[in-house]
Design a protein around this nucleic acid. Structure first.
Length: 396
RNA sequence: GCUGGAAUCGUCUAGUGGCAAUGACAAGAGACUGUAAAUCUCUCGCCUUCGGGCUUCGUAGGUUCGAGUCCUACUUCCAGCA
């Protein structure tokens, strides 16, 4: 196999860059936003919608697809099974270690607030041990055990192009001491993931890559040391993980990427608000994924160049969602008022049209932002573009 | 005309002696970042120094310490009989 990742041009800081990721199911021009189709399908978007809005890759989740792994194998892998037929990435289930465990409830926050605490041990649906994680399925309450080996076997059966090592994501409230333990465990799991992945990574007749995932919270010593350790291992790329505090994101990514090998691709896990994307790209993240554009669309939050709007407040408005947008929804002439009317119609079919159109718009907004960032780097005006965009978007 | 039944916050609705009064929807505000999220939280009679104060359940009286709840009359609506 050839080189997986090629950097084409690098920012003056030596970290941020544009490039191409080659996968068995196609190339990804970076930086790129990967749409999230946890179960193999993006909510309310068809595969045609994804192509139309310029999506390059889809991220799914090994945890959610664990029971369908054999079926997906039989269909020839995630790309074929889903009908997406393009590059795919799967998460290991590491996020669920947190979201169903210590972070049950709403602890995915980027802000530390007074009173924010981890879920009580007895309430958790994910219990961490050295061997792996005991899960209780949130829907049917059935138990499951997933450790590094299980996660690798599931992902290799699913056959996404890029896999994530099985990691433990800590919450923003976890202490330094806990993060030291969790990080050491995640590093041991990384070795086990790598070893198991090698056994199965070509089983489907094409090569599947594995990214090691960096944790370490907000502490520079942990971030740098784990980056050095995992950086020395034989991973194809790296997932930049954690529950980030907004103010610390840039530093954390810089610490990681100053230590990691430059020529391997990096995926920033779970972030996509424009300010985070600019920081991510600047600090060397090549790909991103996030549920926010899609979820926020469903909740009536519409992205515009001048900031986000709450569609609830747009009754009767003739304004376009965003005057410069080139998405299908905007091209079809859907104004804020018309889209709101679909949403509030009380008719389930019209509501589904709203979900589709709103999701198309927000997703295109982020995909297009990535395209423009790429272009700005190509034209040596990344920082100017960033300042201009963020000033208009956040109004400051 | 007679006989039943019903009138409660924008709408529907709970409530048969201690109630500013249930639930749903609508409305308003906020949240959402590797999807337990087409979701969640808050407000939703008026005023408030957030302690509380005031006025409310078709209208008018009455019984009672106390009435949305019981009684009387009236108004309107619904059903059945004429």
């Amino acid at each position: 196999m050839g080189t997986m990742f090629e950097a084409e041009k690098t920012l003056s800081n030596g970290l941020g860059r544009i490039g191409v990721i080659h996968t068995a199911h196609g190339d990804i021009k970076t930086p790129a936003f990967m749409v999230v189709g946890t179960h193999g399908k993006v909510k309310f978007l068809s595969m045609d919608d994804l192509s139309d809005l310029g999506a390059q890759a889809m991220l799914s989740n090994g945890y959610h697809l664990r029971r369908k792994a054999a079926e997906i194998t039989a269909a020839g892998g995630l790309a074929k099974w889903s009908g997406w037929n393009g590059p795919t990435l799967t998460d290991s289930g590491g996020f669920q270690v947190m979201s169903l465990g210590s972070g049950m409830g709403k602890v995915v926050s980027m802000r530390r607030k007074p009173g924010l605490a981890n879920a009580a041990h007895k309430d958790r649906l994910a219990i961490v041990t050295e061997k792996g994680v005991d899960f209780v399925d949130p829907f049917d309450k059935s138990p499951d055990f997933i450790g590094p080996e299980e996660s690798m076997r599931i992902q290799c059966q699913i056959g996404s192009d890029i896999h994530m090592a099985f990691d433990e994501l800590t919450t923003i409230t976890d202490s330094y001491e806990y993060n030291v333990d969790a990080l050491a465990r995640t590093e041991r799991w990384a070795e086990r993931s790598l070893k198991e992945h090698k056994k199965h990574c070509d089983d489907l007749g094409y090569h599947q890559y594995l990214y090691g995932v960096l944790q370490g919270g907000r502490w520079e010593d942990l971030r740098r040391s784990t980056a050095r350790k995992l950086g020395a291992m034989d991973f194809d790329g790296y997932g930049l993980g954690g529950s980030f505090e907004k103010e610390a994101l840039g530093d954390i990514l810089r610490w990681c990427n100053e230590e990691l090998p430059f020529d391997k691709p990096k995926h920033l896990l779970g972030l996509s608000h424009p300010d985070d994307i600019f920081i991510g790209v600047e600090m060397g993240a090549d790909t991103f994924d996030c549920v926010a554009p899609m979820r926020e669309a469903r909740h009536g939050r519409i992205y515009t160049r001048d900031g986000n709007i709450n569609l609830r407040k747009c009754a009767g408005s003739d304004e376009p969602l965003d005057e410069s947008c080139d998405c299908l929804t905007c091209k079809a002439g859907l104004t804020r008022g018309k889209l709101r009317a679909l949403w509030k119609s009380g008719d389930e079919r019209l509501k589904e049209i709203f979900y589709n159109m709103a999701t198309v718009h927000n997703t295109r907004f982020i995909v297009r932002l990535m395209e423009e960032i790429r272009q700005s780097i190509l034209e040596d005006r990344f920082y100017e573009f960033r300042d201009e965009f963020l000033k208009r978007y956040y109004g400051k």
